[in-house]
């Protein structure tokens, strides 16, 4: 197990390097001049421009810029934005917001998705099963930002139940955005649970459980559900990382000062350092949670051996 984890960790390094270089290259190598963008309409003197270029290593070849950047990263230096603020500061301030949003989303995803999926899977073809099927299809079809507006309009403006903007009301502020961020995953979890459960109900060992004279609740609750939930639990786990990276739309619509919103703002302002720093962090989380899930999987399923 230890060796497996070590091997996995080792394999994530090239992926992390590759992904961060990809982002770095996109932000710094492609056309578009960050200095010009920063200046906007104000004319900058040649001298000021040159000074800025030097400060941000913009005259080095791309690979050298990247190496310098990674060198900084390894010392905990994510660079600074154009106003001189450390990117790490921004991250430290905004990460908790995004983490809370992702947590709210995962809770909704698990609670609603699992419940719906289990009830549908147990009674395949029932009214509830069809309801879940139709509802999840609709949810998957409506783009997240549209869903955001619908939620704001219905629950915020019309019913006045939840705040629709900002995080001024504590956990309460995270309900709507959390639901919206969770929506797609929630639909998948419901469907995944449903198919997984239905598949497991057909397994031979479920028939054995019935042949053993176990109560129906035990046959389903213990001998079917446990196995069916393995893929679902791992899906949800891996999704935490993905949700954080996916928060850009939700945070923008709900005006939530998290990392996604920061990426959005910095991309529009061409704040390369902030974009690269935060998106690299997203990739890191994504990889990290996938790793966690692979380990979790080994704990849940004894057939998996890591040697």
């Amino acid at each position: 197990m230890g060796r497996y984890i070590a091997r996995r960790l080792l394999l994530t390094i090239p992926v992390l390097i590759g992904a961060s270089f990809l982002i770095f290259a996109m932000v710094y190598a492609l056309p578009g001049d960050p200095i010009r963008a920063l200046a906007g309409d104000r004319p900058l003197s040649e001298a000021v421009q040159a000074q800025l270029r030097a400060e941000y290593n913009l005259d080095d070849p791309l690979w050298l810029q990247y190496l310098k950047y990674v060198g900084g990263l390894l010392q905990g230096d994510f660079g600074t934005d154009f106003s001189g603020r450390a990117v790490l500061d921004t991250i430290e301030q905004r990460l908790p917001v995004t983490a809370r949003l992702a947590l709210a989303a995962v809770i909704f995803e698990a609670l609603i998705g699992l419940t719906a999926g289990i009830l549908a899977g147990i009674r395949r073809g029932s009214f509830f099963d069809n309801l879940v099927l139709v509802t999840t299809t609709l949810i998957v079809s409506v783009p997240v930002f549209v869903l955001g507006f619908v939620a704001q309009y219905v629950f915020g403006l019309r019913l006045g139940l939840f705040p629709t903007s900002g995080i001024g009301e504590g956990w309460y502020s995270y309900v709507l955005p959390g639901l919206v961020l969770a929506s797609l995953s929630l639909a998948y979890v419901a469907r995944l649970t449903r198919t997984s459960l239905a598949e497991n109900l057909r397994q031979d060992y479920v028939r054995t459980a019935r042949a053993k004279g176990l109560k129906p609740a035990v046959v389903i609750g213990k001998h079917t559900l446990r196995n069916s939930l393995i893929p679902v639990v791992t899906f949800i786990g891996a999704d935490i990382g993905a949700l954080m990276g996916g928060a850009i739309v939700t945070e923008t619509i709900f005006n939530i000062p998290g990392l996604g919103r920061a990426v959005y703002d910095s991309v529009l302002r061409q704040e390369g350092a902030v974009v690269v720093g935060i998106v690299t962090l997203f990739v890191f989380f994504y990889i990290f949670f996938n790793l966690v899930v692979d380990i979790l999987y080994a704990l849940l399923d004894p057939r998996i051996r890591y040697d």
Binding site: L22, G245, V283
Partner: peptide, 12 residues
Amino acid sequence: FYGLPLILGAFI
């Protein structure tokens, strides 16, 4: 590429 969500990557 899987590490970068579709929207985020395309956005940048």
